[in-house]
Design a protein around this nucleic acid. Sequence first.
DNA 1: CTAGGATCCTGTCAGC
DNA 2: TGCTGACAGGATCCTA
Length: 288
Amino acid sequence: MPELPEVETVRRGLEKLVVGRQILRVEIFNEKSFQAGKGDVENFLIGAKIVTARRRAKVLILDLSSGYSLVMHLKMTGQIVFRGRENWGGGHPNDSFLTELPNKSTRVEFELSDDAKLFFNDQRKFGWIKLIPTAVIDEMDFIKKLGPEPLTGDPKTEFLRRIRRRGNSVIKAAILDQTVIAGIGNIYADESLWLAKIHPSSRVRDLSDKQLSEILVAAIDVMTKSIKAGGSTMKTYINADGSKGNYLDLFANVFRREGKPCPRCGATIEKIRVSGRGTHFCPNCQKI
DNA sequence: CTAGGATCCTGTCAGC
DNA sequence: TGCTGACAGGATCCTA
């Protein structure tokens, strides 16, 4: 269930491990997970070299020497695993990092030069990979409508302009809206609102520009911290001693901590449902 | 145009 | 031991 920091972590892994390699073969285990025009796989994928690993919001982009790109979205359960001289995985944390691959959740497998393989695993099949010309990525509907990148430049003015269009929404739904600000998902929404001391069910119109800016700053802080911690990768999934780790422990204050004390005030963290999503907050620090 | 709910899919877990 | 419903780190589609 990767959000911006997890996707950025995957991007960095791919930059190191697959940029410069050639794609020799592709095996598609689930048709919906891999979309390409007729003949494009043969003409623009096989034999092409991976030139760049980019990210926009939660979308990963591998540019190829053929003028085409692999555009991927991990959605809820997508995961990328590299097997070669080293063994690396990122994205949705589960045992597929460790098992023999392909397995039953493998949707696409790439064979790369230098005896390496790249696996796209995705239990729920919501994720996708599209092979399209590099030049048309910016014309994709989803990409075109995205809000500003939180970790690049100064997103504040544009964020405020866009979130004000959602005055009647609850704040949590508004910051999950990718056309308002790019990259925030359920974890970082809850963590940001806790940091900014804003109740997730507050209406946007009832919040000041100052409060909204504080939420943005909080989101930037927690996502930066998460990237530094290494995202949800094999490394954070398995501790050095071989025991199972939990990368949420590295930065989360409220997410999946219902029933536990708030690290700031000691009140008991609650879990409720806000705009259809499980939502964690401190009833004492975050009042409407 | 915005807002809210159903929907895509597989797997796990709590509660009978 | 089974069954059943709720839920899951996302975004789109449909309706009002």
